[in-house]
Design a protein around this nucleic acid. Structure first.
Lengths: 124, 124
DNA sequence: TACGAATTACTAAGTATATAGTAATTGCAG
DNA sequence: CTGCAATTACTATATACTTAGTAATTCGTA
């Protein structure tokens, strides 16, 4: 099964990942866009058909759970951005990612820390 | 104009970015997939209609040039991956990006260097 | 336990995307 | 300057995606 998510499916999965699980009503609540209840349901049913979520009954509603990790789903998208936009250069991509002024110094430090550890491994 | 690229458009733009410019035949040559000549032409014409490329005559063919920067096009896609998959955490995204064994030590060092410089700015 | 609001099941339709065929055009080789 | 191979212009079609309506079902409540 070639884990591919459409834009709308990604919106919905993001909610499930964020909250661990959600009902149709909850997803609808989180998504700011004006979607019909049945639209969200249709998307979830599609995701279930593809095996990307499962559900359990809860009262009269279904509670949906993701069955794939976000990173797994992101791999392809990230790979594509990396290859097509940044010509495979992680450096370029990271540079771009951190060029945003909104990035906190704290976050930068944590990322550097991470790199230190990673490089530490390589060296010894 | 809301710079949005479909998958196939991105494939084609990637070639233009990579080579600075290209004719239909050249794009076709780079894309490994089996596409009809006219298919690539159609995509390029679409991109031109949206103002993402322009062309000049060269012999009997057209040479197409990108009119948008890759980073500009990537912003949205990257933002989406960041927000939806990594819940806005650049740290998570970078971690994932560098977790690949294929990343060279050299590249890791360059990225750390970049971070050092960035942090240097912040400190002073 | 019967009603009703909420939910699920089924169906459909508009729009976007991807692909490519045929017709018209073009410019270079002979 | 003419033929033709390459190219562009125009048109069309199949599939994927998004959205949501109506019908059937369900469970809590009165």
């Amino acid at each position: 099964m070639p884990l591919h998510l459409t834009n709308r499916e990604l919106d919905v999965m993001a909610v499930l990942w964020e909250r661990e699980s959600a009902t149709v009503a909850e997803v609808l609540d989180v998504l700011s866009e004006e979607l019909a209840y049945t639209t969200v349901l249709t998307v979830l049913r599609g995701l279930e058909a593809k095996g990307h979520v499962r559900h359990e009954s809860e009262g009269k509603a279904f509670r949906y759970y993701p069955t794939v990790e976000p990173a797994k789903a992101g791999e392809k998208a990230l790979r594509r951005v990396l290859d097509k936009i940044y010509q495979g250069s992680r450096e370029l991509l990271v540079a771009r990612l951190l060029s945003d002024d909104a990035v906190s110094e704290d976050e930068l430090r944590r990322i550097r820390q991470m790199l230190d550890e990673r490089l530490g491994e390589v060296e010894r």
